[in-house]
């Protein structure tokens, strides 16, 4: 990305990467990719590539962090040094610490934490390649990985963003649109319970625009949710099919 393009969206409503306003980037999901972890998932959301590993429930270390009435969820969002154009320092940045917290809070309502007191689960999110909307992709993959670890969940959590570029509200912003656009609204939901677990807004939107952005993001979430369910099924179906031969 060298110079600023003149128009982010043309008169026909086609964006820089050739998508329509309400079109998602291609998403690929895979479950159970890390044998050493209790649960794992991999997501490719456009050019984003994110790997998630889940460990636990296990005894908390250090012990004083454990809670007597519930399980503790710990999250680490980390970007690989090679995940962006300019080398990123591998030390956790302010942004990563904040995203870890935000992702943890988006996932926590979905987990039955009160069933396993004094224990803890660790969610490690490793961004291998970033292209805008990594927090949403991370939440989607992390929820799958937690389900793959056999931890009881109220529902899977799916996330998707919407935003505003120039004067149009669009779905699923990528890096250039995020940086040059007017606003970004990431939303995470539990689709079956119709509950929102994450809602942020960066930029300025009118109340009307905000509402369209949220409903657009929710539609996007539902599309990704179908893929999420499919990914989970595929892993456990292949086991079933192999057996039926």
């Amino acid at each position: 990305m060298s110079e600023k393009p003149e128009k982010l969206i043309d008169k026909k409503g086609i964006r820089l990467d050739g998508r329509k306003a309400d079109e998602l980037r291609p998403v690929k999901l895979e479950v159970g990719v890390i044998p050493n972890a209790d649960g794992s998932a991999y997501i490719e959301h456009g050019k984003n590539k994110i790997l998630v590993g889940v460990f636990g429930p296990r005894e908390m270390h250090p012990k004083h962090l454990s809670q007597t009435d519930r399980m503790v969820l710990r999250c680490r969002y980390h970007m690989a040094p090679f995940s962006v154009q300019e080398r990123k320092s591998p030390a956790p940045s302010r942004r990563e610490v904040e995203l870890s917290k935000v992702i943890r809070e988006a996932l926590e309502p979905s987990v039955f934490t009160d069933l396993y007191p004094r224990s803890g689960i660790d969610v490690f999110i490793e961004v291998l390649q970033a292209d805008g909307g990594t927090r949403c992709a991370s939440i989607t993959a992390a929820s799958l990985a937690i389900a793959d670890a056999g931890i009881p969940l109220r529902d899977l959590v799916v996330a998707c963003a919407a935003g505003k570029i120039e004067d149009t509200v669009v779905l699923d912003l990528y890096d250039a649109e995020d940086k040059l656009g007017a606003a970004d609204v990431p939303v995470a939901i539990m689709p079956n319970l119709n509950a929102v677990t994450l809602l942020q807004m960066d930029g300025i939107l009118t109340p009307d625009e905000f509402e369209t952005a949220v409903s657009m993001a929710m539609e996007g979430c539902k599309k990704i949710y179908a893929m999420q369910k499919e990914a989970l099924r595929t892993k456990y179906m292949t086991v079933k099919e192999e057996a039926e031969e």
């Binding site: 389900a147 009881p152 969940l153 109220r154 539990m190 079956n192 319970l193 989970l232």
Partner: peptide, 22 residues
């Protein structure tokens, strides 16, 4: 084959193993 959060039944049923009621 069901995934977490899938609606299984409504009304006069009991939640057994690996399910919950709301």
């Amino acid at each position: 084959l069901v995934t977490p959060g899938e609606l299984l039944a409504e009304g006069d049923y009991l939640a057994g193993e690996n399910t919950y009621m709301e």
